[in-house]
Design a protein around this nucleic acid. Structure first.
Lengths: 354, 354
DNA sequence: TTGTACGCGTTATCAG
DNA sequence: CTGATAACGCGTACAA
């Protein structure tokens, strides 16, 4: 039965159509219905008679047919995909957000295209461009500031975008995250309230990281409101390593007079600072208070649990997905988009030494 | 003589063409060339004359045209995407692997579709089905055992698949990862060599986790080779929490005679065990040796750095990508696919108490 | 409720 | 090296 299709004879025109049907047509033929009916049975089952529906389902199952997303996307102008570009997955709460994002998209029949920018705006732009070629229906980005080319591209494409891990009241519905600045304003104010006056800061690099920059601004604001500021020798910037934090911590503590409180830019920087403090024989919080940002399990399990700011990464992912899907599907978007940044007070913070 | 109807089209054809062209055709028209030439200028620049190439590039830039991946996929039968299903991103080395995977794919012009199965074979199957509909060119999975329906689906689709975080010499080129069984065989043998005879195990649940099961088997093998075995009261299974590990650790240590060494199924279980041991006032390794699996930074920074098995997650991601791309692109695949599992001896392991 | 026929935007195959 | 044109597989007005 494979003998049917004749080879293209030189004299003959084009081999018009007598080929064995595939895909949708094969299903339609096997079920004895038209392709339109099969299509409807899949996409709008309620409009096809019960009998046909089950018959078609049986044929699809039997043939093991899987609809062709490319063909479908071509005609519907919808790919059913959403692109997300994170700075990285191996630090911060981005993996958790990606996880939640993906799960939420699944419920609405969408799929996640995932990429990392490595904190490089140029790479972020390229990744988004690739996503655009793949026909994503929407985009999840991190932070509020992007490459100028990226901004132009997004305007041209008119693609729904949600910026995450930031919150900008001026941009309702396009940002989902905590108010980084206020979070560190509050945390710093809390320490000032305890009586601290000399602060050390082990910050994340603010290079291409507007969230980190905002948090630093929050610290400055709070200190400034009390006529305070950190000394240059008490300020250090690092990436996100425990070992790195230990080194930076030593450097800060070498500059007299020592600070009585250390603000750390992320969880691992705080863990490193505390481990080094304990290794140096310092009492926490007796000699020194240590606070961090982000809450990971180890922070509450160390010998001296660390005070920190908790922002639920999975909550950000979930809300961002819902917000984006609302825009894509043209639905109203009821969710609020500011995610709470909650100060979790633990044993590592207390009054300064007398 | 053209007035008569063309070939066998009885109904009046409606050549609705006076619409302004879009996409490729718009570019072609603006550049004064054919669509074929524009297409070639993009996909095989070397066969288009220098002059046309630059002219076309200018037009593309000016119009801000982005090729339509759906249309391209429809005709080439290639989507330029690869699907990956991880159990989760917020545990183990999966996020690191995803990160590396994505970067490696980027270099070859491919994009990553990412999903999580939550250790549920049924969900894994559904995710792969969705990927199939999206037209992925290949698939990255974790582990070697999958839902029967998934196995059948993969056979039918003839989709290249790489199973990661496992290594099976019998399946060359389809598995990329460590030999889990041998890794824990070696680690356990190392402890036996130190003189340990009574072992506790805080294992990861083996439910839908063949890697964890293999590792347990490795432990059993090594113990059995010396006529040893773990007592039921010294065996506990958990997921992956520090707090959980502490509780399990207490339970194990409550059963006399206490073990002199604890084998932990992953990094956080080991961290939890050690923190609890120190909190209980036990000397590590004086009273008790503790070893883990996977190497995360905190393990080497704790007061007593923890002996563990290091498997480079990013290496797995990178190699899996290369292996899969080789199959997709029909290239020879030179890489080896067993990733080394290296025992990193630190202070937490030593001879048993006398 | 079901079937027919067209078109989505691109690439491949030819013929020039 | 370039141009014309037929598919690619599906969704959907429109007709029946």
């Amino acid at each position: 039965m494979d003998e049917t299709s004749p080879p293209p004879s030189p004299a003959g025109p084009k081999p018009r159509s007598p080929r064995t049907p595939k895909g949708l047509r094969a299903v339609a033929r096997a079920a004895g219905v038209s392709t339109a009916t099969v299509s409807r049975a899949i996409n709008r089952p309620e409009v096809v008679s019960e009998e046909l529906r089950t018959r078609i389902a049986a044929v699809i199952e039997h043939l093991g047919w899987v609809p062709d997303g490319a063909a479908r996307a071509l005609v519907t102008r919808r790919s059913g995909t959403v692109g997300a570009v994170f700075p990285t997955l191996i630090q911060g709460d981005f993996a958790r957000a990606a996880n939640a994002l993906q799960r939420e998209l699944l419920g609405e029949g969408h799929t996640l295209l995932m990429a990392c920018s490595d904190y490089d705006p140029e790479l972020e732009f390229r990744q988004v461009r690739i996503f655009a070629e793949r026909g994503v229906d929407g985009l999840i980005l991190v932070g509020g500031t992007h490459h100028p080319d990226l901004v132009r591209l997004l305007e041209r494409l008119a693609l729904p975008v949600v910026n995450t891990f930031v919150f900008d009241p001026a941009n309702p519905g396009r940002t989902v995250g905590p108010d980084n600045r206020r979070a560190l304003f509050d945390l710093t104010s809390y320490l000032i309230g305890l009586g601290h006056r000399r602060f050390g800061v082990i910050a994340q690099s603010t290079r291409n990281n507007d969230r980190a920059a905002e948090r630093l601004a929050g610290i400055r604001d709070a200190l400034g409101a009390h006529g305070l500021a950190t000394r240059p020798a008490h300020h250090a910037e690092g990436l996100s390593g425990i070992a790195e934090a230990r080194a930076l911590f030593r450097r800060i503590m070498a500059a007299e007079p020592r600070p009585t409180a250390i603000l750390c830019g992320n969880a691992y920087l705080a863990v490193g600072a505390e481990l080094e403090a304990l290794a140096m024989g310092l009492a926490v919080p007796g000699d020194l208070s240590i606070v961090g940002y982000d809450d990971i399990e180890i922070m509450s399990e160390l010998p001296v649990p660390i005070t920190t700011v908790r922002v639920a990464g999975d909550e950000i992912g979930r809300r961002a997905a819902r917000c984006l899907l609302a825009r894509i599907l043209g639905r109203p978007d009821a969710d609020g988009h500011e995610c709470p940044a909650e100060i979790v007070v633990r044993a590592s913070s207390g009054p300064p030494p007398a």
